[in-house]
């Protein structure tokens, strides 16, 4: 029966001001596809809701002059999907963002919300980690940048400081011969939550992997950057030995739990299986197939 205050500022400064002033009672609303569900279940009862969808910087998608991409934290998955180039350059990131919820939910749900919700199973996060995405956050003491893998701190908690709002994601320029992919294991075919998620981004030159990043979701308290898996791929021709080594590195990185969605043994095993399958798709894309 507590009253909820709702503001929808036009500027980021206003939003940060209101958000910081309200302290821990405030929640940011982008698509609301997590927040409203949490409110309905009684898990959170915010005193203030700051709707960020009216702020231009948070809803824009921009191609940068260096070939990189910048898109606002509140950009819905459906808008990203409709961008003429984004999905051609970052198909793996796009497929991950577009796995968040149903078609209807896609009209609202954003990658920013997915990251700040800090679920270990968030679909977009491993793909963003693999892509080497960086986020820009703004708070009462100004702007700073964080790597995506450094944003989640624990299930439901981020490393954002009080009053800080996620503004946009920046994805780096893509060298020729690059490809990315995201796969998740779910028991059904859609409308489900990842039991394991795997994002891979790589660059091939003459069949040799020159750059790789691997992100894993739902196998630890936060989504992980798995550097040893990437190391196993870099310098190889993605042969079975390299794939096995990378898969084993993924399994070694897992610190999962037994819960209603999967077991420790299952998640650990699947992390390796998905790594191999995701690398294959990313490599095909890198080769323009």
């Amino acid at each position: 029966m507590t009253d909820i205050r709702y503001v929808a500022p036009q500027t980021l400064d206003e939003a940060v001001g209101a958000y910081a002033a309200a302290g821990s009672a405030a929640r940011i609303l982008a698509g609301g596809t997590d927040l409203l569900v949490q409110m309905r279940s009684g898990a959170v009862q915010p005193g203030l809701i700051v709707d960020i969808k009216k702020i231009k910087e948070l809803t824009a998608v921009e191609e940068l002059s260096d070939g990189g991409f910048r898109f606002g934290a509140a950009v819905p998955g459906a808008v990203l999907a409709e961008h003429p180039h984004f999905g051609k350059i970052w198909p793996g990131v796009l497929e991950a963002v577009n796995l968040i919820g149903s078609t209807q939910v896609q009209g609202r749900a954003s990658a920013g919300g997915n990251l700040c919700n800090a679920s270990p199973a968030g679909d977009s996060v491993p793909a963003m980690i693999a892509a080497g995405a960086v986020v820009t956050v703004q708070g009462p003491s100004g702007r700073r940048e964080l790597k995506v893998e450094d944003v989640p701190a624990a299930p439901g908690r981020t490393n954002l400081k009080p009053g800080e709002i996620l503004v946009f994601f920046t994805l780096p320029p893509r060298p020729p011969g690059s490809g990315d992919a995201y796969l998740r294991m779910i028991p059904r075919t859609e409308m489900d939550i990842a039991v394991v998620g795997c994002g891979v981004s790589l660059t091939l030159k003459d069949g040799v992997c020159t750059h790789a990043r691997v992100g894993l979701g739902a196998v630890a308290p936060t989504a992980l950057l798995v550097a040893p898996a990437a190391q196993a791929l870099i310098g190889s021709r993605l042969d079975d030995a390299a794939l096995n080594a990378a898969a084993n590195a993924c399994r070694a990185a897992c610190r999962p739990i037994d819960d209603k969605r999967g077991t420790i043994a299952y998640r650990t095993q699947i992390a390796g299986v998905l790594l191999k399958r995701t690398v294959k798709i990313a490599a095909e894309r890198a080769q323009g197939k």
Binding site: R188, M191, I193, R261
Partner: peptide, 9 residues
């Protein structure tokens, strides 16, 4: 979400 009835697909 976690009581998994089949979906169409």
């Amino acid at each position: 979400l976690d009581y998994r009835m089949p979906v169409c697909s």
